[in-house]
Computed example of a mutant assay.
Amino acid sequence: MYDVNLVLRLVTAFQNELSCFSSPVGFRKFASLLDSYLVEVSADSYLTPSKFAALVLLLPDSARESHDELSQAIDIYLQGSLNS
């Protein structure tokens, strides 16, 4: 349903090129956006464990101000996996 491969490629390609990564504030905003995306796609029944893990591992733990959205995404993903 979601094009996770595209997001993975875009983030990987631009990690070294975007100026927002040079400032801690910009990087945290990006991390928040990526975590929001992770929450959104975690309910997708077609999301494989390897793709989910790849999305989670795109950011270092230090990039996140809070792990709330990450925890929420993991909960949603596991609930979907158990119900399938």
Rank of each mutant, 00 (worst) to 15 (best):
L10V: 14
D3S: 07
V11Y: 13
G26K: 08
R9C: 00
V56I: 13
S81N: 05
P49W: 03
F30Y: 10
S23A: 02
T12S: 14
K29V: 03
E17S: 09
V39D: 09
V7H: 05
S62D: 13
V25K: 11
I76E: 01
A43N: 13
L59W: 03
A73K: 04
C20N: 03
K51R: 15
E69M: 08
P49S: 06
A53M: 13
F21D: 00
N83D: 06
S32T: 09
S50E: 15
S36K: 11
N16P: 01
Y2D: 12
K51D: 15
V11I: 12
D35C: 13
R9N: 06
S84C: 04
E69H: 02
V25N: 09
V25G: 05
L18R: 09
E69C: 00
L33V: 03
H67T: 07
Q79L: 04
V39F: 09
A43Q: 14
Y2S: 09
D44E: 06
R64C: 02
V41K: 07
C20F: 10
T48W: 11
A13N: 07
S71D: 11
Q72C: 02
E17L: 06
D44I: 08
T12C: 02
A73V: 00
N5C: 00
G80R: 11
L33P: 00
L70G: 00
H67G: 04
V39A: 13
T12V: 04
E40N: 15
N83L: 06
F30M: 14
L57K: 14
V11T: 06
S32V: 00
F14H: 12
D35N: 15
L78M: 12
T48P: 05
S81Q: 13
